[in-house]
Amino acid sequence: MLPPLLFDDRQAVALTVALQVAATTDGGVGQDAERALHTVRQVLPARLRHRVDALGVTAVQRPTSRPAAPVDGDVLLAVSAAAHAREVLRFDYDGGDRPARRAEPHHVVTWDGRWYLVAWDLDRADWRTFRLDRMRLRTPNGPRFAPRPLPGGEVARFVTGTFRGSGDAAGQWPCRGTVILDLPAATVARYTREGLVEEFGVDRCRLTLGSWSWPSLAAAVARYDADIHVVGPDELADAFARLARRFTRAARVRRTDG
Rank of each mutant, 00 (worst) to 15 (best):
Trp115Tyr: 12
Val21Ile: 14
Tyr191Asn: 12
Asp121Ile: 06
Ala54Gln: 15
Leu44Arg: 03
Asp74Thr: 14
Arg148Glu: 06
Leu89Ile: 04
Val79Phe: 05
Pro105Lys: 11
Val43Ser: 09
Pro67Ala: 11
Trp214Asn: 11
Glu104Tyr: 02
Val60Met: 09
Asp225Thr: 12
Glu104Trp: 02
Arg124Tyr: 00
Thr58Arg: 15
Tyr93Asn: 03
Gly195Tyr: 07
Glu194Leu: 13
Asp26Pro: 08
Leu6His: 10
Arg86Phe: 07
Asp26Arg: 15
Val88Ser: 01
Ala46Arg: 15
Trp173Arg: 09
Val60Thr: 08
Ala82Thr: 08
Asp168Asn: 15
Arg246Ile: 00
Val230Tyr: 05
Ala220Val: 00
Leu15Cys: 15
Asp121Phe: 02
Thr64Ser: 14
Pro174Met: 10
Val179Gln: 01
Ala54Trp: 08
Gly210Trp: 10
Phe158Asn: 01
Thr208Gly: 01
Val17Asp: 02
Ala241Arg: 14
Ala169Trp: 04
Asp72Ala: 14
Gln61Ile: 03
Arg255Gln: 11
Arg131Ile: 06
Ala250Gly: 07
Gly201Leu: 12
Arg41Lys: 13
Thr64His: 10
Tyr224His: 15
Val60Pro: 00
Val60Cys: 09
Thr192Tyr: 01
Asp72Gly: 04
Ser213Gly: 08
Ala244Leu: 11
Pro4Cys: 10
Phe91Val: 03
Pro3Val: 13
Arg134Val: 08
Ala169Asp: 11
Ala119Trp: 05
Trp115Lys: 04
Thr178Gln: 13
Thr129Ile: 10
Leu209His: 00
Phe130Ile: 06
Arg193Val: 11
Phe247Asn: 14
Val57Phe: 02
Pro147Val: 13
Ala226Ser: 08
Val29Leu: 15
Val60Phe: 08
Ala68Gly: 14
Leu77Asp: 11
